[in-house]
Simulated assay, not measured.
Amino acid sequence: MIKNKRSEYLIKGTKENPRHICGISGGKDSSALAIHIKNTRPDIFEKLELFFTDTGSELPEVYEYLDKMEEYLGKKVLRIKADINSKHKFIVVDGEDDFNPFDEILSKYNGYLPSPRVRWCTRIMKIETMEAWVGSDYCISYVGIRADEPMRDGYKSKGKNKNDNKNIVSVFPYREDNLSLSDIYRILENSEMGLPNYYKWRTRSGCYFCFYQRMVEWAILSKLYPDWFEAARKYEVQHSDRRDYTWVKNNSLEKIKLNADKTIIRYLKKQYKKVNECDLVHNLDQMIEMVQRNEIRKFIDSWDLKKLHDADGENKEGCTVCAI
């Protein structure tokens, strides 16, 4: 309970005194939003609850960036994981731990892997976990949808019945302040937080086995994080219904790994034609040589691959946790 100026006690999580929450996905938009709120709405930031719905299958760079954000903001980012076997359906963990809710939920689906058509991973591990954490409290949720994204919509709180109260209300500071993509980059640069390191090779945040990854990103994953790639491949086994499920439609990870160099080089040749050579650190021949020498880390550390990705514009596919 808190005391207001009239010496009246208000219970946190009511209509009169709602909770203020902001979901951090580990991506650029939600990360910059927390910084923007701190800079422009200090009274809101003081009571803002930052949270991250952790699938237990995030890239290492995501956890590193969350730790960096906590230090910069001076505020904890609460790590919440789905726990389908617990009373509350979620648990709060301290930093990175070994609990992996994906495996338990996958068994519930008899090994049926999530896909763009059946996105049970986003629904259960992200959205329903957040809803369980909020409970019946009234909340104002600050969402990182920009002014230059008119077609995107935020999370809509749903009651059990159409007349139920909708206890989570979304607000959009970027739209209120007319901020677009270039402003997000500026906020991150000015804060010295910069972009998360996975943007060096990946187009968006997400689990290491995210089915929204582009083929070239799967190929690079096999080079950068062979253990994670192998872990994803092990999910592609024949299940009790005698069907084989794969992360990529009509393509196994084993096949992607065997053709990784060809996939990456083909992508480089295609994207190189779309960019200004002067904006790159390496020329095409040097890029191809580094791939062939298995010097993929040296290549991506130049940020050249991100520039090649950006030639196609922003990747809009993926889970919608940043729109909660």
Rank of each mutant, 00 (worst) to 15 (best):
E8A: 08
Y9V: 14
Y9S: 07
K12E: 13
G13S: 04
T14Q: 07
G26I: 02
S31E: 08
A32S: 15
I35R: 03
N39Q: 10
R41S: 11
F52V: 04
T53W: 12
G56V: 10
S57F: 08
E58H: 02
E61H: 08
M69H: 04
E70H: 06
K75W: 01
K81E: 07
I84W: 03
F90P: 14
V93P: 00
D94W: 05
F102G: 00
D103S: 02
D103Q: 00
G111P: 08
S115V: 06
P116G: 03
R117M: 10
V118L: 12
R119L: 05
R119V: 08
W120A: 00
T122F: 07
E128N: 14
A132H: 10
S136T: 12
S136V: 06
S136G: 06
D137M: 09
V143T: 15
I145N: 05
M151P: 00
N163T: 10
K166I: 12
S170M: 09
S170A: 15
Y174M: 05
N178G: 05
S180P: 00
D183A: 01
R186E: 15
Y198F: 15
Y199S: 03
W201M: 01
F209G: 07
R214Y: 11
V216M: 09
L221D: 02
L224E: 02
Y225G: 05
F229E: 01
K234A: 00
D244G: 03
W247N: 06
V248E: 13
N250S: 05
N251D: 01
K257F: 01
I264E: 00
L268F: 15
K273L: 00
V275P: 15
E277D: 14
C278S: 13
C278A: 13
V281N: 12
L284E: 12
E289N: 09
E289V: 01
V291N: 02
V291I: 15
Q292E: 10
Q292W: 00
R297S: 11
I300P: 10
D304E: 05
L308N: 09
D312G: 12
K316M: 13
E317V: 11
V321D: 03
V321M: 14
